[in-house]
């Protein structure tokens, strides 16, 4: 979708502002929001692309005015509301009002280390040969899906070169809708001038990781 989250190359005026000796979290509620979000992945059963879509799929003014962990919180609430794990009146009241929904699994403190160590690998078995090889010139498709995609706007319709093959990975555009549809994944590298025209920096090369269905031969 064409959301405010897709920020590559947008003309924001401000400088990057690193914070010296930055703490991991800036408030107690950030700690709890982070931990609740990770822990709810297990009973919630959603995948990372569903989580990302729940965060990014909101009006630009909302996305840009919320802090990072406020967006996490809003995304988590949406995922839980959609599945009836919590209800709007419970969030409003700040206490449980309805019986819990049965869930397959929850995260105990004994399970934390194993859950983090396992992570969520996205690589899948190869079932067909790769269409492209290292060095091939490819053009990214000009697509505008209304749902989740990981093809940023700033590379759409541009010609790049395949630099790496990563094997076959879960396709986020469909995974956000519940279908893994694994595909070959490539690192595709673009020249600065190709992406930004004569104003581009010719000494810069930028890559994205692109699934096969984002690409066509060039």
């Amino acid at each position: 979708m064409e959301g405010a989250h897709d920020m590559g190359g947008v003309a924001w005026s401000g400088p990057v502002l690193p914070e010296p000796d930055e703490p991991v979290f800036h408030a107690e509620w950030e700690r709890r929001a982070f931990a609740i979000t990770l822990a709810m992945g297990m009973p919630g059963g959603w995948n990372i692309d569903m989580s990302r879509f729940a965060r990014e799929n909101r009006p630009p003014e909302e996305y840009l005015s919320k802090s990072y962990y406020e967006i996490w919180l809003a995304g988590l609430e949406r995922l839980m509301l959609e599945r009836g794990l919590v209800t709007a009146d419970e969030i409003e009241a700040g206490k449980p009002l309805h019986p819990a929904k049965p869930v397959a699994r929850t995260l105990s403190s004994d399970g934390v280390a194993a859950m983090l160590h396992r992570g969520g690998p996205t690589q899948r078995e190869v079932r067909s040969p790769a269409l492209f090889a290292v060095g091939n010139r490819v053009r990214t498709k000009m697509i505008h899906p209304p749902t989740h995609t990981r093809l940023p706007r700033y590379v759409r319709g541009h010609v790049g070169v395949v630099e790496l093959l990563h094997g076959v990975h879960v396709f986020p555009d469909s995974n956000a809708l519940g279908q893994e549809n694994p595909q070959w994944l490539y690192t595709v590298t673009f020249d600065g001038r190709e992406l930004w025209g004569p104003d581009g920096d010719a000494s810069v090369k930028t890559s994205v990781d692109a699934w096969e269905s984002y690409l066509e031969p060039a």
Partner: peptide
């Protein structure tokens, strides 16, 4: 809001506060 949400999720049995502490 976060505190209330944690209470709701804990009382419903979806999250274990000890696991949250360990994640942090």
């Amino acid at each position: 809001r976060v505190r209330a949400l944690e209470t709701i999720l804990t009382e419903k049995g979806y999250v274990d506060p000890a696991a949250l502490d360990l994640l942090i």
